[in-house]
């Protein structure tokens, strides 16, 4: 599996940002220790909350520094309130909280769909408040996105849906023919490439959308309620898949309120409540009163 996730030369030509991100991936064994230290340090920083001047050993994948997001519609009630945390490369992180706790805002800030009102967000070292408009598409090529409602194109087959993601960033036919079947096999849909979304189950559709998110081999994968519409058995399969993707070096952030799942996976859990970061535990549990 790991060799499937090794970045290709064609990708690293995008720009230096990608080079930087990928260089961290190219030698996973070598940096594993460093990353582990970074995770520890990041957790420490996150629990310490206001210690923004902290410097980890390795460059973190994601940095939130006193990030506040206020929507115009609700000026008195920030959706996120001075959230400070770091996520290292290669981490698997759950983001939990009730509806309205700020999970979706957090996710949408990460791929620059939204901008923070105050505070700094760094993704792969890039400051999202000052990023140039033309660079945003390149940022997004490095942050795969998975959503609760899959966002598949109903008239395209599984293959075409995944191929679409490569097509619109200008990849050649050869790359598409090579990578799409491979990634569909990886998510367990090798034999259903030519089915349309309405011929697939919910879990299978989510696998297609995950395949689309990772086909370009982004160093980061963010998921907003990926199992929200799925039954527990199917959800488990999706989570195992995400874990497998994580094992290949991809940083994975999953926003969810699937309590059982979070408790079963024993991963880092960041808890948001009313826009505040209230807990950040290494092998955390979903400890909100549901």
């Amino acid at each position: 599996m790991p060799e499937q996730q090794t970045p290709t030369a064609s990708q690293s030509s995008n720009d230096e940002f990608i080079d930087f991100l990928l260089s961290d991936q190219k030698t996973p064994e070598h940096t594993l220790k460093q990353q582990a230290q970074a995770v520890k340090a990041a957790r420490h920083a996150a629990t310490g909350r206001q210690q923004a001047s902290f410097r980890p050993a390795a460059k973190p994948a994601i940095v939130f520094d006193r990030v506040t997001k206020v929507y115009q519609a609700q000026p008195g009630k920030p959706a996120l309130n001075k959230v400070t945390l770091q996520i290292a490369f290669g981490e698997f992180v759950f983001l939990v909280g009730h509806s309205g706790s700020g999970k979706s805002t957090f996710i949408r800030l990460l791929n620059r769909e939204l901008t923070s009102t105050r505070g700094t967000i760094l993704v792969g070292g890039e400051n999202l408040s000052t990023i140039k408009k033309w660079r945003i598409p390149y940022l997004r090529r490095n942050v795969g996105c998975v959503f609760q409602d899959f966002k598949l194109l109903p008239k395209k087959t599984a293959f075409e849906n995944v191929a679409f993601a490569l097509q619109v960033i200008g990849k050649s036919k050869a790359v598409i023919r090579n990578q799409v079947p491979e990634v569909l096999r990886l998510v367990g849909l090798g034999d259903k490439q030519h089915k349309r979304p309405d011929q697939l189950s919910g879990g299978e559709q989510q696998r297609v959308s995950i395949a689309r998110a990772i086909v370009n081999r982004p160093p980061m994968l963010i998921c907003d309620e990926p199992t929200g519409d799925l039954d527990p058995q199917t959800s488990l399969g999706i989570m195992k898949l995400l874990e497998r993707i994580n094992h290949t070096g991809t940083t994975v952030v999953v926003a969810t309120h699937d309590k059982q799942m979070v408790n079963a996976m024993r991963k880092r859990v960041i808890t948001l409540e009313g826009g505040y970061l209230v807990r950040d535990e290494a092998e955390g549990e979903y400890s909100l009163n549901a």
Partner: peptide, 12 residues
């Protein structure tokens, strides 16, 4: 929306 999310440039 999907094109934007997967990082297609506006021109594309």
């Amino acid at each position: 929306e999907i094109m934007r999310l997967v990082g297609a440039s506006n021109r594309f």
